[in-house]
Computed example of a mutant assay.
Amino acid sequence: MRDEFPHGGARPLAAVFFALPNRRGERPLAHLAGFSGVPVADGYAGFNGHYEKAQPGGPLTEAACWAHVRRKIFDVHAATGSALAAEALARIGALHGIERELHGKPPDAHIRERQARAKPLATALKLWAERSLTQLPGRSELIKALRYMLARWSALTRAFDNGRITLDDTQPEQGDEQSMCAG
């Protein structure tokens, strides 16, 4: 997917969708064999082969999707009304609020604002989540959602250092053929 508008680009929106009969890992490996860039995706294990080795088209750098993290937490909140889940949603919502303000600005503005405003909020979210893990029963759905988030932390925060990477794959904000959404 290509959408340059969120960071001031001029090229038209472009998207490709492949429908596949199953979720076996060799499908994305074959599809992305010549791709080099930053896929924004959920934690689907089928992509792991791309991140583990150099690809013929060049290296792939994983960027995890905040919308997938949010959805897991939202589902817990909808089912239980958990105050901890509500807090996590508010914290993630603040990150998306900053992104909405940045829509249409150039990549350097994204980096500058993300570093100044979003990165500290994300750091606080991580610390809060780590503390919250100690307050939850070991098998709760919220603890699973928070562990999902923490396990992907490096990939989730990659966008704070690159103005062309979006926070999630539900609202494309990539800017060139070197970026794509998947998941």
Rank of each mutant, 00 (worst) to 15 (best):
T134K: 14
T134G: 13
L136Q: 08
L136D: 06
L136G: 09
L136P: 07
L136R: 01
L136V: 06
L136E: 04
P137R: 12
P137L: 03
G138Q: 03
G138R: 05
G138M: 00
G138W: 11
G138C: 00
G138F: 09
G138P: 07
R139M: 00
R139Y: 06
R139S: 11
R139H: 11
R139P: 08
R139F: 05
R139A: 09
S140R: 10
S140G: 01
S140L: 05
S140F: 13
E141N: 11
L142V: 12
L142Y: 14
L142M: 09
I143C: 02
I143K: 04
I143Q: 02
I143H: 00
I143N: 00
I143W: 00
I143S: 05
K144I: 02
K144F: 04
K144H: 07
K144L: 06
K144V: 05
K144G: 02
K144T: 06
A145F: 10
A145N: 10
A145Q: 08
A145H: 09
L146Q: 04
L146G: 01
L146W: 10
L146R: 09
L146M: 12
R147L: 02
R147M: 00
R147T: 04
R147K: 08
R147A: 00
Y148E: 00
Y148Q: 03
Y148R: 03
M149F: 10
M149Y: 06
M149C: 06
M149R: 03
M149G: 00
M149D: 00
M149E: 01
L150S: 03
L150R: 01
L150D: 01
L150M: 08
A151M: 01
A151T: 01
A151R: 00
A151P: 02
A151G: 06
A151S: 09
A151Y: 01
R152W: 02
R152S: 08
R152V: 01
R152F: 01
W153V: 08
W153N: 07
W153L: 08
S154N: 12
S154P: 05
A155E: 14
A155K: 07
A155C: 13
A155H: 12
A155R: 11
A155V: 12
A155N: 12
L156P: 15
T157Q: 11
T157K: 10
T157G: 05
T157F: 09
T157E: 11
T157S: 10
R158P: 02
R158D: 04
R158A: 14
R158Q: 12
R158E: 08
A159P: 15
A159E: 08
F160N: 09
F160K: 13
F160W: 15
F160D: 10
F160T: 15
F160G: 02
D161I: 14
D161R: 14
D161N: 15
D161Y: 15
N162T: 10
N162K: 12
G163Y: 12
G163M: 14
G163V: 15
